[in-house]
């Protein structure tokens, strides 16, 4: 008969509970590591294999590359049309060199559709600002340091063993 009274007690009991509101623009949500946000692009990693453009279900990626003097492919343009991108993550899944990755950025609202065409510079900037640029740089510094130490160790070893073999110039450019 008075089932609604139980309901009233439930709603009243909620009043003292912790509030869950996230003050959004000031406080950003914490995203897990795998979060699929807007892409970042690292041009020096890209080998212009075109796999990302081919796997993309909406064909929102267009890219072009050049062969430089060392016969190495070099990326020239890399555009993602975020009007049709569905952030499915397939492009990063197929990328063999982790040149295209995702960030935790998700705010794409703009005043004009044109702004949703993101080019290589924007994507690189996103990499620097919100991507794993810091980690990559740190890793690079770390690798350089390690290589230097290795080279130094090799050199000292060489010095102690005597310079009987031809001097090698490996190390240094890891």
């Amino acid at each position: 008969m008075f089932g609604f009274l139980k309901g009233l007690s439930v709603t009243f009991g909620q009043m003292t509970k912790k509030k869950l509101t996230l003050q959004y623009p000031e406080v950003k949500p914490e995203w897990p590591e795998r979060f699929r946000g807007i892409h970042q692009f690292i041009p020096e990693h890209c080998i212009v294999c075109n796999q990302c453009a081919r796997i993309c279900p909406t064909s929102c990626i267009s890219l072009s590359g050049n062969r430089d003097e060392n016969k190495k492919m070099h990326i020239d343009t890399y555009d993602i049309n975020f009007e049709i991108c569905i952030l499915c993550d397939l492009c990063t899944e197929v990328c063999p060199t982790e040149a295209i990755l995702m960030t935790d950025q998700f705010e794409l609202a703009t005043y004009s559709r044109d702004e949703l065409y993101k080019d290589i510079h924007w994507l690189y900037e996103n990499h620097v600002k919100h991507g794993n640029y810091q980690q990559l740089q740190a890793a690079k510094v770390q690798a350089a340091k390690e290589a230097e130490e290795k080279a130094k160790a090799a050199e000292t070893e060489k010095a102690t063993v005597e310079a009987s073999t031809a001097g090698s110039d490996k190390g240094g450019d890891a």
Binding site: W31, P32, R34, C88, D89
Partner: peptide, 19 residues
């Protein structure tokens, strides 16, 4: 639902369109 969605976000990186 938010808790479930957070779990999905951790495992698949998305809250709604998991792929």
């Amino acid at each position: 639902r938010e808790r479930i969605v957070q779990l999905f976000n951790e495992i698949s990186g998305a809250r709604l369109t998991y792929n």
